[in-house]
Amino acid sequence: MAERGSQTLLFGPMKPVGLTNPHTGKRAYAVVQLRQDNREDTLRNIVGFQTKLKHGEQKRIFRMIPGLENAEFARLGGIHKNTFIKSPLLLDRYLCLKDMPHIRFAGQISGCEGYIESAATGFLAGYFAACRILGKTPLIPPATTAFGAMLNHLIDDTNVEDFQPMNINFGLFPELEPEITANGKIRHIKGAERKEAYCRRALEDIIDWTEQL
């Protein structure tokens, strides 16, 4: 990203939006966010600084950031590969290989992205497998929930050719129904209200599912 231009990082991980210096009232030119990394708060990580620079260069460059001149580095950045299968082609809706139904896939190899997304597909694979072993019919999570949206991303076969790993996002959820207002008009839900409506609908619909698991 930094290679693209000297200002590129200002619009990415170093974006100063919403961070006004309380002492001066000025907005910073660029910011580096240090996030607490352990309970004792003896480790901090630099937010958004994924890099494949050589380790020596990482130390040299990051120590040029004001305040980090004497930083000790507990862990340096590295970019690794991302192996995943073409799930929408290969898996059925219970995450089994269509051709080898005793094999299920879960986690990032199945084409989700992110920690909790991985855990959620692990949850589903575990639950579906338990149902088969116990002779029960598995319940598919409602499509309106985050569980359901994540599962749909992996198995929706309209998506086979350009399948790419994805974090959970509202684009994976079914459209919201427009509201009918008191005077009978159709009103489409927009903006921040839209996100809240997705969440409200999901949390209502998930209860039916979790209660029967």
Binding site: V47, Y115, A119, A120, T145, N167, C199, I206, W209
Partner: peptide, 24 residues
């Protein structure tokens, strides 16, 4: 990262997934 991203289940998709996972 050590972050599981937003924990807001009123307006964020990942925060919603956190909450659904807790309920499950």
């Amino acid at each position: 990262s050590n972050s599981f991203r937003s924990d807001n289940h009123q307006n964020s998709a990942i925060g919603l997934l956190h909450q659904e996972m807790r309920l499950a």
